[in-house]
């Protein structure tokens, strides 16, 4: 059976990071993968302008951006009435790598979190996850975002509870 592939030329990215070296690295990796539509923003205001104009499929953002942080940008996309797409896949790619940041990002509705420094393998897996394995969304009083419960994996054995 032929393996599933991702045609990155069909995916439009926005990278938000104030560090030009970091932005350039992500740009180079995405180009290597075949992406042809990659927008870049060094600050969150420009990012929102690009997002509002439409045509972005995946947002990759650093936490440490200004004038509003990557977390606030995430919050605006998920919860603002002005949001262009509340279900936009968002990867938080940040040097704020400590566990409390992971929890905060998850609770604000991030799709995937990846700590810097990162490996290309880990980055690729996050891309696969947001593009090829989309998750259901939860709309509750205090949360709007991807279902925080990870999908159930078929364990390969009999479903004994169902038989019960």
């Amino acid at each position: 059976m032929v393996a599933e592939k991702i045609d990155f030329s069909a995916v439009r990215f926005l990278i938000v990071d104030p560090n030009p070296l970091s932005t350039e690295l992500l740009y180079d990796i995405l180009r290597m993968l075949g992406s042809i539509s990659i927008r870049r923003a060094a600050d969150s205001n420009k990012a929102m302008t690009i997002l509002r104009a439409g045509g972005i499929d995946v947002l990759i953002t650093e936490w440490n951006v200004g004038p509003v942080s990557g977390l606030e940008l995430l919050d605006m996309v998920r919860n603002s009435t002005q949001s262009p797409d509340r279900m936009l896949p968002i990867i938080m790619l940040t040097a704020n790598s400590e566990p409390e940041f992971v929890v905060q990002a998850r609770d604000h509705g991030v799709t995937e979190f990846l700590a810097k420094p990162f490996t290309v393998d880990a980055f690729y897996r996050r891309l696969v996850s947001v593009i090829a394995r989309p998750r259901s969304f939860v709309n509750a009083d205090s949360y709007f975002g991807p279902d925080r419960r990870r999908r159930q994996i078929n364990h390969g054995g009999p479903d004994r509870r169902r038989e019960d």
């Binding site: 032929v2 393996a3 599933e4 592939k5 991702i6 045609d7 990155f8 030329s9 069909a10 995916v11 993968l33 075949g34 499929d57 995946v58 279900m87 896949p89 690729y124 696969v128 593009i131 090829a132 394995r133 989309p134 998750r135 259901s136 969304f137 939860v138 709309n139 279902d147």
Partner: peptide, 21 residues
């Protein structure tokens, strides 16, 4: 519970072109 958005997957995932999953 809102079903997962599938439009991006439909557009980008295939068996002919691109990088293996």
């Amino acid at each position: 519970i809102i079903p997962a958005p599938m439009e991006l997957k439909r557009r980008a995932v295939n068996r002919k072109k691109g990088f293996d999953i």
